[in-house]
Each structure stands twice: as structure tokens, then as C-alpha cells.
Design a protein around this nucleic acid. Structure first.
Length: 106
DNA sequence: GAATTGACCAGCT
DNA sequence: AAGCTGGCCAATT
């Protein structure tokens, strides 16, 4: 069971922003970093998702790279793509269709 | 406080 | 188009 007190302020801001992504939509690591108040911290944002224990309440599979390629996933990239397609997100080759990408305001 | 570690990004080739 | 490079940021050790 995860210990909530171990999360930093930055961790919480990122996860809070990530929770706003609705089903069937995606956003980018960059956008989350921006919403968390650290515009240039996209890489650090990826690290937050990587260790996030809330795969259920925080839809971290809906976060992709800024070039719209899907990016990584702790449980495996195939799983990530399957989850997205199951929600109705469409791909064009290895990239997510632009119309499914949203911005987050934080 | 330095070095290491990533689910990243932009520019260049 | 696909791979490399240097930069970036926060957490961890």
C-alpha cells in the first residue's frame, strides 16, 4: 500500500493535472508539466508517472509525448496502446490522431 | 552537495 | 524518417 506522505509537491501537482484527462482523450508530458507550473519539466513529469502507484485513479496511460508518439508505460507499451484504443483513441501509424489530444489548465 | 537515474524534448544529420 | 546529441528537471542515493 502506497504511503501518500512520500510524494512531493511537484508529484501531487502533476498527478492532480493528470486526473483531469477525460476518457478517450490524451495529453502530453509537456502539457502536464506546464499545468503543474514547471513548463520545462516534461522529463521530470515522466518520472512522476513512472513511479505513480495509482494506475487506476490517475490515468497515466493517457499521457503521451509531445510529438504524439505514445511514449512509455510501466506495464508495457503494448498495454498502453490497447488501453487507449479501448477508450476510442485512434492512431495514425505510431502517432495518436491530433483530434484526441487536449490541453490541461491548471 | 555531487552523481545518477529516468514513461522527455528540440535540433540536427 | 529514424537515430543521435545535448539539454532539461526533480527525485534519489
Amino acid at each position: 500500500k502506497p504511503d501518500l506522505s512520500t510524494f512531493s509537491h511537484f508529484d501531487r501537482m502533476v498527478m492532480k493535472a493528470a486526473m483531469k484527462i477525460p476518457m478517450g482523450r490524451v495529453t502530453t508530458y509537456m502539457a502536464l508539466a506546464d499545468a503543474a507550473g514547471r513548463q520545462k519539466a516534461a522529463r521530470a513529469t515522466g518520472s512522476v508517472m513512472a513511479k505513480n502507484p495509482f494506475a487506476i485513479v490517475v490515468p497515466c496511460h493517457r499521457v503521451i509525448r509531445s510529438d504524439l508518439s505514445q511514449g512509455g508505460y510501466f506495464y508495457g507499451t503494448e498495454i498502453k496502446r490497447s488501453l487507449l484504443e479501448a477508450e476510442g483513441v485512434k492512431f495514425k501509424g505510431d502517432k495518436v490522431d491530433k483530434e484526441f489530444v487536449i490541453e490541461i489548465h491548471g
